[in-house]
Design a protein around this nucleic acid. Sequence first.
DNA 1: GTGTTTAACCGGGTGAACCCTCAGAGTGGG
DNA 2: CCCACTCTGAGGGTTCACCCGGTTAAACAC
Lengths: 252, 252
Amino acid sequence: MPEPLRIVMADDNYLVREGARRLLEDSGEVVVQAAVGSAPELLDAVRRMRPEAVLTDIRMPPGAVPEGLPTYDSAAGPVNGAAQADRTGRAMEGIDAAHAIKAGHPEIGVVILSQYVDESYAFELFRDGTAGLAYLLKDRIGDLNRLLDALREVSRGGSVIDPQVVEALVTRRVRLRESPLAPLTARELDVLREMAQGRGNAGIAAELSLSESSVEKHVNAIFAKLGLTAEPLVHRRVTAVPTFLREAGLSG
Amino acid sequence: MPEPLRIVMADDNYLVREGARRLLEDSGEVVVQAAVGSAPELLDAVRRMRPEAVLTDIRMPPGAVPEGLPTYDSAAGPVNGAAQADRTGRAMEGIDAAHAIKAGHPEIGVVILSQYVDESYAFELFRDGTAGLAYLLKDRIGDLNRLLDALREVSRGGSVIDPQVVEALVTRRVRLRESPLAPLTARELDVLREMAQGRGNAGIAAELSLSESSVEKHVNAIFAKLGLTAEPLVHRRVTAVPTFLREAGLSG
DNA sequence: GTGTTTAACCGGGTGAACCCTCAGAGTGGG
DNA sequence: CCCACTCTGAGGGTTCACCCGGTTAAACAC
């Protein structure tokens, strides 16, 4: 049996953090040097402990965990967080922490755990390369070995990506290429964006410093490219807007 | 120290299920008779074990967990789930299971764990009363005692609701009353719904078996009640639609 | 029985949104 | 240099969406 792997782990959810820590330690294959609840605490623990690998949730609060909630530090025992900080809603603090860790300690592997497949997050995680990085889905970890294997793999510079995440990355590229917005020119997108905000042609003209007839020209082209042919009972302007909002959400 | 509480727990997430089970058992205050990964398995385990309390995630798949993923049954040891079943996307299987358990065994308490505050789920959980039921948020469980206290409370017929959930229930009622859609008559809502689907006045007239001038009359009243006064650069029809979609999502 | 509200519908008028044709300028590729 | 595309703009015409005032009928509350 190889020597246990030294890791630091982070999850702001108490049950996940303490439960996973217990499972990993009881396996005998991992030493959990710290189990923390926020991104700053994670970076601090990595600095102090120099683990071989890090296991973190993708959704990490940027501030400390709420006051009174304990985390675990093998050198100092349970510690209390600082004053409560509000969530920013950004779900990438785990990824930001991974990049920061990699920048400061390239030899430390990082395993990111995510509740959902989100190809934009995976894309962001791997933008500087995949070495020493893993992206796993919480609901598809069927036993502890899968997690232990990932930790070991990243600690020696390898990479592990859940197949569903790979598939999502591939389909994202295809959907962007096949988006109904793809044939629109930049100016047409400008006009459609203003249209989606409820502006009439005069309002769009004012906003983009164009004449109304130019706006009309663009609007007609937009309808044609989105395949919105004139139909007697349809209000095309209204139907163009959700198309734009849906596709804009995809790419922006 | 009182006698340990006998519980059955359910969560389709392996890390949460096995980690929480380990934490609870190590506390010495709980005996986990079964730890399962799906709603049917939960109901089956409750039938066989007759626990004093149940701890379940709100988001439970209706089918068995994927093949090969182990769950734990203290009488039978690790068991494998049946053939893989797709997720339905409904997040209330945990609540449906709670209702089923309460119907069959009123003396068994149920603790529901949820990742998010969702007042419609809480409303649904408590629609037949709150006795023997708890609704807790995973991210606000700071230590094991909070969970143990809830399990004990529901096992003796009490009720525990996270204050954030109570607040969400209260603000839901207020928001429904203050919705901009509240002053609209039923017929106006019909017209607005068709409008939101991109129909012109002629299309709405055809769909609702009305004349166009009746539709025009309703449309004008809708704009007035939504406070959408005529402004030179604004296309009111386009701005009415997201208002409707947002508010309809709230109450639907 | 009376009054109010909702729902339906019409006619007339105005303004905005399409829709087509024509035209000029700038940019980039072959 | 030529061609295609994008962007801009105008004029003329048609259609649709508002907007107002008026009417009738049904349902409900007082």
